[in-house]
Design a protein around this nucleic acid. Structure first.
Lengths: 203, 203, 203, 203
DNA sequence: GATGAATGAGATTTCATTCAT
DNA sequence: TATGAATGAAATCTCATTCAT
């Protein structure tokens, strides 16, 4: 009995736990956060936490899932059907970096936690790899299209270049997360676009 | 009695401890490595470890110190006095990425450990920030020189661009460390140079 | 509203819970079985379980009750009015051990659980002791009769012998329950009868 | 360094832990005893307990080991080379039951704990089975010898009979451990011998 | 200086029981 | 009457650090 209401309610409780965990994991780190702290932050009881998540690691994975789901449609919905490869790439860069403006250091730090944990947590690794391959394929496809249409140089390697662009984003996120510097994401985006499209030297 | 011998011996013991810690921290992570494991890996006794390092964190910081010292002269010694800014930059990129070819995933992973720990360990943060600022200044200087000499476009922002280039390196290191993919650092370096110097589209 | 139906229904639910508990307690043991597992196995809800049994211990005692009730009339109904003491004893041995042929390791294991728990659960102890005394008295009476009628030796102590015979049964049950060996209860019964009636050496 | 002394000392500490555990496990049972109680009873610290035993189960197994070792030579050393099978058997019964006179309810209860735990703890099962088979073989051999020499009846099955005799001992131990009755082990031993050697009826 | 046994605070996890619906 | 989400005390186990030898 008590069907619809309960389902919705349970989702809320789950969300509450995840939010508490996100806050703590991102500021104190996964290992320096105890379940007791998650309990306190969430305002729930210890038993309840374990009712929703089998273990601390499971909670961590749940968090990764949530983050991946949230960001899933950001890039794909960015451009129009008729766009040139160049336009597509610029839009992608714009969206990716634009999302950083609103993104919190918190979410960058948490991403970093996932990355570092990945080699040591199977399920985290799997999710990370899937995400990585999907994004890489997405970018490589655009670049390949550009090369074929003559929009990009012949000797541009789509796979390598996709890798480099992803690394740029990952690296900026990493540097932002682990520094106290303020990044000016807007002009940063412009500089990236310029560099990628024209190179540093004048034409 | 002869101080020289004792000093040398002490340095060796220290090194042995650091090597054991590096191996373990890089493969299992800082938190998942216990001091008992460092003891076992080093072949020394627990008391001895604590004779050389006040705490686990101190050992971690010692490791960071060692890594920073090892890499400190790599970049600066790369170019000749009369080099143009462009040449300098290419050499820097070449050296930075070239060093990855020989570098182990291990050293990338441990750098990552330092990065993650940084926000929560003051002394790690300080060292990391110093290093970051030094490298950033070094790069920005080259780029600024290039802009002033007309080798690079007027609208290239030296600081932002230095940041971007560093992020590229950090990001590739991050992605390599947390994936099982094999990176072809040689062609990757070429692609980066091309992109930075010419952009993606044909001239 | 009709009370008959409700009573019957309640009995069924109770039985269902007891059966689930028996299955689990006998295979995993009392302590290694959680109420959640009883819930799952019974297909009922946790609330319902606690509606029928005040506590886990109460459920355990309920199980003991059920087992004792089931086995209560087995021995007494075995023999005819005119039987000699010897015949009675043989019949008792035959029935006791004969019942093992059909009995499951499960019921032996659960008896064992009761025995082990007894010293630490008053009500379990009381039931066990009552049962023990009843059986002991029953056996001792037969043996005493036999001694008085000259069917058994004068120096046979009815109480001690009753104890020994009970121990034999308990011991075989114990050994069977805690081993993986297959017991051939039929010839075992014969051997016991022979030994008890004739001793090992030839007459 | 510090070799001999340390070994002896460590053995003592180990023994101290085992004794504390034995006391508690036998009176409160394995599951109702917490490691905190073992800590308190032993007067050592929690860390020390886990320095000597990997887990609670390991401590349990260690206890079983100790008990088995203590009792290992009791039976085998009981009889002289020239003894007849009958004499041997009588001596074995005498020693086995005689040992109960001095044995504590405690050790019987602990044995029971081992037996009950056996089906659920591999290493306990293995040790128990080894012990069981050894004793069984030992007894069966004596009986077989007796049958072959004509000291026992032709239709006595050595294996089954050995099983029955062991069950008698196990059963008495079980009944003693789980009851509050006082057993008169001396006359009990006599009654057993008589029954086994002559049967209940007069010759 | 070198050792490694001892420590105990604190971590994660379980589970019998309750009670609002 | 029936439910099952919530609870929190208590269990097991870990591990950085100390200190007597």
């Amino acid at each position: 009995m008590a069907p619809r209401v309960t389902q919705e309610y349970k989702r809320e409780v789950r969300e509450r736990i995840l939010s508490a965990a996100e806050k703590l994991f991102s500021s104190k780190g996964y290992y320096d956060t105890s379940m007791d702290e998650v309990v306190a932050e969430s305002g729930l009881s210890k038993g309840t936490i374990y009712l929703y998540f089998r273990s601390k690691e499971d909670l961590f994975v749940g968090l990764q899932d949530r983050q991946l789901k949230e960001s899933v449609t950001v890039l794909e919905s960015a451009f129009a059907p008729g766009d040139s490869a160049r336009t597509k790439l610029e839009k992608v860069i714009g969206t990716a970096f634009g999302s950083m403006v609103n993104a919190s250091r918190r979410s960058c730090r948490i991403s970093l936690e996932f990355n570092v944990a990945a080699p040591r947590m199977k399920s985290v690794q799997r999710r990370r790899d899937e995400r990585f391959m999907a994004l890489h394929g997405f970018l490589a496809e655009i670049i390949k299209e550009g090369v074929e249409k003559g929009e990009f140089r012949r000797d541009v390697d789509p796979n390598q270049t996709a890798l480099i662009l992803m690394a740029m984003a990952d690296g900026l996120s990493l540097d932002w997360a682990t520094t106290n510097l303020d990044f000016d994401w807007k002009t940063l985006t412009e500089q990236v676009k310029k560099m990628v499209m024209e190179g540093l030297p004048p034409r």
